[in-house]
Design a protein around this nucleic acid. Structure first.
Lengths: 222, 222
DNA sequence: TGACTTTTCAAATGAACGTTTCAATTATGT
DNA sequence: ACATAATTGAAACGTTCATTTGAAAAGTCA
């Protein structure tokens, strides 16, 4: 209780949270052992249960910890200068999101953990959606609405979110295949740039096509 | 050895392969227990090791078995009438691929297993790429080449494959989030239809945009 | 039917892991 | 310095799981 409000930067508890975040992000909950985590944190194997009570409770704390830490870091992901060209905003969002997921040097374990949870939810999914997906959906929605210059059907917005996020996540979740096919050992800045560029072009084209589809089709139906 | 060349349809060995395929597809290798598999197959817990030697060897046999069985089933996925409008071909490919991945009634465990392997490879990745990814890549490549009416840069083709497959896989891998956001308990035919429709429109728009980007940009650089 | 092989079954084995325990050590407050 | 609380450490415990074992049952062939 004392430590909770007094987060000394290098306490065992803190090191465990960091180590657990990275380990869970890399291997998932089940495949991560307490031994791996405590070893990575330079702590005793019993420390996890001493500080958190159980592996599962540690996982929960890691999620809230990551959310808190990444909460501020996420702001640039979903913010844009007012009046900016929505295509540029989309491009930047994609670039930043890919960066979070693919950059090998930055220890972005929280986004990776969320990507894992989205694929195979193990804890409160609704909360995670609220925290991580909805902001992205809102952001993309405003971009699309901007591009269209008016109200856009909600299903269209949902589709755009799914397509854009789906593409981005693919490069993370399926990175081994992508890297193999591209003949790379790991992502480098140039490759991420190139992917972001192409993915943006593809998505802008896709959104444009959807918006064109939107009006005549729906009007005709009603 | 005798049984290998003589695949009696309802032998214990065969039931184990089926049950293991479904179980591995549903829960992944590590989370699937031999107990679950043998129970599902209506066999004794020792039968896996009797017939296959180990859980890992069973997994390998399941992959080859699934490849063989699905090999024929995959033909329609990557074939099209000659001279067909490439947009129609793309649309059908997407519809069929989504069907394999999302349809709740059809027991399409092999595609799901491959989707799992692509995300988190546990065995020979190259072979899997050769078997499942390359055909799709070839198919999409010929569609794009058709749409463009001539040779298309290889990186462009790679990008298209990644975007299209990425989107499709998203609806499978992240189905819990998608279903939650769409307020559904599980995918139904109408929803799969709608997704396929939108995803096709989005992808055709994306491909068109990429192709427009292709020529001027690359010409300018060289 | 009777020897022989193949298959099934329940129980045993051993390894990996989360968790508990308790003594040793370190920090804290007086 | 002392007492008390917090933390660390190593070993032990209980569970889950893959795998092994050996005996029972079923099948095969003369």
């Amino acid at each position: 209780m004392t430590r909770r409000n007094d987060p000394e930067p290098d306490s065992t508890r803190q090191r465990l949270l960091e180590a657990a975040g990275e380990t869970f992000a890399d291997h998932g909950f089940a495949a991560s052992t307490i031994q791996m985590i405590s070893q990575r944190a330079g702590a005793n194997i019993a420390s996890v249960n001493y500080y958190f009570g159980s592996k599962e409770k540690l996982y929960h704390e890691v999620l809230t910890f990551g959310r808190r830490v990444s909460g501020e870091a996420d702001q640039p992901l979903v913010t844009a200068p007012v009046g900016e060209n929505p295509r540029v905003t989309l491009r930047r969002f994609i670039r930043r999101y890919l960066d979070c997921l693919l950059s090998p040097d930055r220890p972005e374990w929280y986004n990776k953990l969320v990507a894992r949870e989205i694929a195979e939810p193990s804890v409160a999914l609704d909360e995670l959606i609220e925290i991580k997906i909805q902001p992205i959906r809102q952001h993309l929605a405003s971009i699309v609405t901007d591009m269209h210059g008016g109200h856009v059907d909600a299903k269209m917005l949902q589709q755009v979110m799914e397509s854009v996020v789906g593409q981005c996540l693919f490069y993370y979740r399926c990175r081994h295949v992508v890297l193999r096919l591209r003949g790379l050992a790991q992502y480098d800045e140039a490759t991420i740039d190139e992917i972001a560029e192409n993915l943006s072009a593809f998505s802008i084209g896709g959104i444009t096509a959807l918006l064109q589809l939107d009006l005549p089709t729906l009007r005709a139906k009603n």
